[in-house]
Simulated assay, not measured.
Amino acid sequence: MSSPMQDLPVGHPIGAETPIRSSVELGAVMREQRKRLALKQLDLAGLGNTGNRFIVDLENGKPTVQLQKVLDLMDLLGLEVIVRTKASRSAQPL
């Protein structure tokens, strides 16, 4: 019998890459992915070994949530963080 964590897709696509510039934007993307996977907040809390309050706070954009927990939950949802230099706002040289 497989565990619920093994049943979650790895790298489940959410469409195009989404730049995240705030905790509110990250929470919204994670909520959208959780719903896309047909998971309730309590389901994700159980899978992530965290409390439901943490999921609620995260999805509402609380800026002081624990980073490692967020990264672990993103992994469970098939999401990842990629850090790169911002694209230039202007293609013209100075």
Score class of each variant (00 low, 15 high):
1 M>L: 12
64 T>I: 03
67 L>Y: 12
82 I>E: 07
64 T>D: 03
70 V>T: 08
86 K>G: 10
21 R>F: 15
92 Q>T: 14
68 Q>R: 11
89 R>S: 03
69 K>R: 14
53 R>C: 01
91 A>K: 13
37 L>M: 14
67 L>F: 13
49 N>S: 10
77 L>G: 12
5 M>H: 03
36 R>E: 11
36 R>Y: 12
75 D>L: 10
1 M>Y: 12
65 V>L: 04
41 Q>F: 00
24 V>K: 05
48 G>V: 02
32 E>A: 15
31 R>D: 04
76 L>F: 03
61 G>P: 02
7 D>H: 10
47 L>W: 07
77 L>N: 11
16 A>P: 08
13 P>S: 06
14 I>G: 08
3 S>T: 10
11 G>T: 05
75 D>C: 03
31 R>N: 04
38 A>E: 07
61 G>T: 02
74 M>V: 10
79 L>S: 07
71 L>N: 10
27 G>P: 08
82 I>G: 12
51 G>M: 02
19 P>G: 05
10 V>M: 08
39 L>T: 15
51 G>K: 02
80 E>V: 09
94 L>T: 06
7 D>W: 08
5 M>Y: 05
83 V>E: 09
66 Q>C: 14
52 N>P: 11
39 L>M: 09
66 Q>G: 14
51 G>T: 02
61 G>E: 03
67 L>C: 07
92 Q>C: 09
59 E>N: 09
44 L>H: 02
34 R>V: 05
40 K>N: 05
79 L>K: 09
10 V>T: 05
15 G>T: 13
1 M>G: 13
23 S>C: 09
40 K>A: 11
61 G>A: 04
34 R>I: 04
19 P>T: 14
77 L>F: 11
93 P>R: 15
1 M>V: 10
20 I>Q: 08
11 G>D: 06
88 S>Y: 13
10 V>E: 09
92 Q>N: 12
26 L>Q: 07
42 L>G: 07
31 R>L: 06
71 L>P: 12
45 A>Q: 05
38 A>W: 12
